[in-house]
């Protein structure tokens, strides 16, 4: 496992074919996700697989279409980078020599704050998945920040790349041919993916999953639709202006839940006031917030994907041979 990771990184360093490097990055993320499973971090593994291996790799590939596949050999001496890298590595190893042993249950990391999350978390939040509980309630404000990071990225990409659909390809028929099989398979696949997305969205309080993962999965379904049926059709299903509005709506749901807590006499993001029974209130708040996250993430991934794919058409001399 670990050895594979090391090999992947070395290969990525050495490769001058950026297409290969992008794929290696996907593999690297995927291996990391498996490693996370092994370390009991199921939610993180899920997200890393969906986001790192999925979204990032797709974005990398769509960029390479525009910027060219091969990188030049650089002429600089590698001395300075090596010194910086060496110093960083040395500092890291130095720091780790005094670290608590791997897996030690008595390590300070596990005995202070985290203890309450494990022992009382499910009871106090009404949610058996402690990760969801901490994410959406104890550290709900961090998660609000995280949704804003997604929103920022969406806005930033749309501002930089623009949102117009350029060129006039009207449907996907020319893109991949009018393959009946593909269209049928595509439709079935999309239905299943969306069903799975719904499950992940509303089951995140009991098992692995939640708004982030569900938002990404939903976006994937639409992206598949885009690939099979063409951009114009996909945009008829979900016009661009609505994807960006969805991000805003999702965020406003989250903020709204937070402000509702304030209006009911608690601090910002206090969900316990949302129902007469504080634990029920917590649970309700978590569900609502996760829903807001799902909507916002879906909108953001779609917007970013659209911004990148909107640029694909005009071939401004940047289109190499991918």
């Amino acid at each position: 496992m670990l050895a594979l990771l090391v090999v992947t990184v070395i290969a990525a360093v050495r490769s001058t074919d950026l297409f290969a490097a992008a794929i290696l990055f996907g593999i690297y993320s995927f291996l990391t996700a498996i490693l996370f499973m092994d370390l009991d971090a199921v939610d993180v593994a899920f997200t890393e697989a969906a986001v790192g291996a999925g979204v990032s790799t797709v974005l990398l590939l769509s960029t390479l279409r525009l910027t060219g596949r091969y990188e030049q050999r650089h002429k600089h001496s590698p001395a300075l980078p090596l010194v910086v890298v060496g110093l960083t590595g040395a500092a890291l190893v130095y720091g780790m020599t005094d670290a608590p042993d791997f897996g030690d249950p008595e390590a300070p990391a596990h005995t202070h704050v985290a203890k309450r999350y494990i022992e009382d978390g499910p009871r106090e939040t009404g949610v058996p998945n402690m990760v969801t509980g901490v994410l959406a309630s104890y550290r709900g404000y961090d998660t609000l920040g995280e949704v804003f990071v997604v929103f920022t990225a969406g806005l930033a990409v749309m501002m930089l790349l623009g949102t117009r659909v350029r060129g006039g390809r009207s449907s996907g028929r020319e893109a991949i041919g009018d393959l009946l099989v593909l269209r049928v398979v595509g439709k079935v696949l999309i239905a299943f993916v969306m069903l799975f997305g719904l499950y992940v969205q509303f089951h995140g309080d009991y098992g692995a999953g939640g708004g982030f993962q569900a938002g990404v999965i939903f976006a994937t379904a639409l992206i598949v639709y885009d690939l099979v049926f063409g951009e114009a059709d996909a945009r008829r299903v979900m016009p661009h202006i609505w994807t960006e509005r969805l991000i805003a709506i999702g965020i406003l749901i989250y903020l709204g839940v937070g402000v509702a807590g304030m209006l009911l006499g608690g601090p910002f993001l206090d969900y316990s006031k949302l129902a007469t029974d504080p634990v029920k209130g917590e649970h309700l708040g978590i569900l609502l917030v996760e829903f807001g996250i799902g909507v916002a993430v879906f909108g953001a991934v779609m917007s970013i994907f659209n911004a990148f794919s909107g640029l694909r058409l005009p071939s401004e001399g940047g289109r190499d041979d991918v």
């Binding site: 202070h112 104890y138 404000y141 601090p267 993001l269 969900y271």
Partner: peptide
Amino acid sequence: DYALGGWEAPWGI
């Protein structure tokens, strides 16, 4: 000091 979400300091933000 203002505890967000009603969780007191080291546990909440």
